[in-house]
Design a protein around this nucleic acid. Structure first.
Lengths: 214, 214
DNA sequence: GTCTATAGCTCGATAGAC
DNA sequence: GTCTATCGAGCTATAGAC
């Protein structure tokens, strides 16, 4: 299925709770663990294909226990996606209306890709713009805005239609590169790092090329 | 086109229903109609999100009637995908082991894209390589073979790793271009035809570029 | 070839004990 | 905070009438 396996998500549970501050505090453990396991299972079987019972079973909980931490199944999905969405919101808030300079546009795309990478498990769950079917309207709208705005920032209105279409294509390439990893290593001996380097180079070159023709 | 909405597939819900030849039986009618309606609903709500009752309701059938034509729900999905898979099989059988010439490689990719386009509803249902979750193993394997083989035919083993990665990226771009249409017209005044022209130009150029460096 | 009826199951979600 | 127990809804699939 999708490259991101359990192991690459983790580190969350290593984060040993600093329960020193808040004695009342719900142990910090369970909620995070539920999100972790849910992410893993959603990636493997999809959202609709993952019953709450499966999530509970893997944690040696019962379904009812999940409902103490989340008010519904879709609320778990929201819990997985929110940190990513918040991070992208933050990035977009910092951005100016437009980047007139090709170098700045590339830097923005690079920063954007870094944000996605640091929440790659959420990106993978989202499948980037495919099968948004079960998402609550509110999240759909946020994602839609992100997509429109990042594309906007990757190009200039004065660009020719050809250049604009290319910019959109390159955004897609960027997304694909982040979502998939494992199953795309078709080239023998290719490491993810080397691959990413090549992809970034390709995008940047194409972006510069588009700008240079103006 | 994922834009494949009700209207573009349809003529179904208009329900023209030439009941005149009931005696010998509209042998071809029902099965085709089920596939048509199922395609439409799978696109809108996803496979898991579409109950058989919804398919039946839209046809004024009952669920049981569907089971006369298909032995299971997943069998309906197979029925949608099979013509596409058969067509790609046919194309791959005609191909030689490799295309040493960049021009030939491009022509193959173009022919491949034409096959996908002529089954674009199936391609859209498939979502091209995302959420293969409910597919029977047999179909998964066919699709996997198609993906590996088409990428293989888009490049040469002697190419540098960079060129090979680019070839893979370009295959992705091609797929994306076919799967999505409607919601990608972010550029004002862009028609799907013009867009396709630009995308093909971009792919071909990049492919030639990769070959030229050798 | 299509229908009625229903079996048999699984799901998401709730109530209440501890 | 987690459990047991259970409900109602909705699902796939089958049996058998017409």
């Amino acid at each position: 299925m999708i490259g991101l396996r359990v192991h690459s998500i983790g580190t969350t549970n290593v984060k040993t709770e600093q329960r020193s501050t808040k004695a009342s505090g719900e142990k910090q453990g369970s909620r995070e663990k539920i999100l972790e396991v849910a992410t893993e299972l959603f990636l493997e079987h999809g959202y609709a294909g993952t019953p709450l019972s499966a999530i509970a079973a893997q944690l040696d909980f019962t379904k009812a226990a999940l409902y103490y931490h989340f008010k519904s199944k879709v609320d778990i999905l929201s819990g997985i996606l929110s940190p990513l969405l918040d991070a992208v919101d933050g990035l977009l808030e910092q951005a100016p209306e437009r980047f007139p300079d090709a170098q700045q546009r590339w830097e923005f795309l690079y920063n954007y890709s870094q944000v996605l990478l640091s929440h790659s498990h959420a990106v993978a769950v989202l499948g980037i713009s495919s099968s948004n079917i079960w998402l609550p309207q509110e999240i759909k709208e946020r994602i839609d805005y992100h997509r429109r705005r990042t594309i906007e920032l990757a190009m200039l209105p004065e660009m020719s239609d050809e250049e604009q279409v290319k910019a959109i294509l390159l955004m897609d390439v960027l997304h694909r590169e982040i979502v998939f990893t494992e199953d795309r290593m078709v080239v023998p001996g290719m490491t993810p790092e080397r691959r990413r380097e090549i992809v970034y180079g390709f995008i940047r070159e194409a972006l510069d090329g588009a700008a240079a023709t103006r």
